[in-house]
Simulated scan of single mutants.
Amino acid sequence: MQAGILLAFASYFAFACGDASLKAIGDRLPIFEIGFFVSIFALLPALFTKRPEDNWGNVFVPNRPGLVALRMASGTLGGILGVIAFTSLPLAEAYALIFLLPIFVTVFSFVVLKEPIGWRRWLAVIGGLIGVLLVVRPGFREILPGHFAAIGVAICGAITVIVLRVLGPSERRITLIGAVLVAAIVVNGVLMVPDFEIPANDLWPIMILAGLCAGMGHLLIVFATRLAPAARVAPTQYSQIVWATIIGASFFSEFPDLIAIIGMVLVAASGLFTFVRETERTRWPSRVPLIRNR
């Protein structure tokens, strides 16, 4: 159990380093080109998530093609929006918006799955929204495309979670992970062609680091969930806000003010409460394979 939780913390540290690498690239390359190369390099560590009973052909033979296609679309779009968010926003601010994901899961569960939502979880939704307002402060600060992109990442992640609730018991893990990576490579590869430019020599190490960190994060989270229940592993994802704050201050001179910190804490607390309540009231967290939705 302890080893699994430690691996989960290491996984989300790797994800945070990968996202910081995206920020380091900034606007020096087109968005789709960044997504393409990072996805290519992320594929390498992800290859080790294959179980002995799986084969690579399973990636292209889903049991429920329609829902897997929706999972591929939400994962690929979320990845593209993530590149936009992290290359244009402070790291901690981007994470605060992306961590609206559990809030959107609650809303989508009510609207799509017709799950009963108690008043405590609705209060958590309101608390998360207030936290975001404290972080972004519309009317007092400039609203950038990156803010909308980060919220889009949260929406795509919530769609992924809803789909995984249905796919989790019947679909192979290698299909759920491999299909998204393949889709990201193909979609970004096609979209980058019109504006393609050869990356500068100093960008290659950063893109390799971003991809390897993302792939290593997936690898570690798979191993973590083999040692500890997903319900114990999932809350460690909020450590990314801490990592983002430290990395942002150390390398990008990003120092959130007190109001922003309060907002981030409120968003994280609302998300954690939402997850705990869903774990208590439903069985879905134990059925869904835990993979990162950004």
Rank of each mutant, 00 (worst) to 15 (best):
F140K: 13
E142W: 00
P145H: 11
P145C: 11
G146Y: 02
G146C: 05
G146W: 03
H147S: 08
H147N: 14
F148V: 10
A150I: 06
I151W: 07
G152I: 10
I155Y: 00
C156A: 15
G157C: 03
A158D: 09
A158I: 09
I159T: 15
T160A: 15
V161N: 08
I162E: 08
L164K: 06
L164E: 07
R165M: 04
L167A: 09
P169Q: 11
P169D: 10
E171Y: 00
R172S: 12
T175M: 10
L176Q: 12
I177D: 04
I177S: 10
G178M: 11
V180K: 01
V180T: 13
L181R: 03
A184Y: 00
I185Y: 04
V187G: 01
N188P: 01
G189S: 09
M192N: 07
M192L: 13
P194T: 12
F196Y: 15
F196Q: 11
F196P: 03
E197Q: 15
E197S: 14
A200T: 11
A200K: 13
N201V: 08
L203T: 11
W204Y: 14
I208E: 03
A210P: 07
A210W: 06
G211V: 10
G211Y: 05
L212M: 15
A214N: 13
G217F: 02
H218L: 12
H218C: 00
V222A: 13
F223C: 00
A224T: 02
T225A: 06
P229N: 06
P229T: 05
P235A: 09
T236A: 07
T236M: 13
I241A: 10
I241M: 14
V242W: 02
V242C: 03
A244H: 08
A244E: 09
A244Q: 08
I246Y: 02
I246W: 02
I246E: 07
I247Y: 09
F251N: 06
F251S: 05
F252Y: 12
F252V: 09
F252L: 07
D257W: 06
I259M: 14
V265R: 01
L266T: 08
A268T: 13
A268F: 06
A269P: 00
S270Q: 04
G271W: 04
G271R: 08
F275S: 03
F275T: 10
F275I: 14
R277L: 06
E280R: 15
E280M: 13
R281Q: 12
T282V: 01
T282H: 12
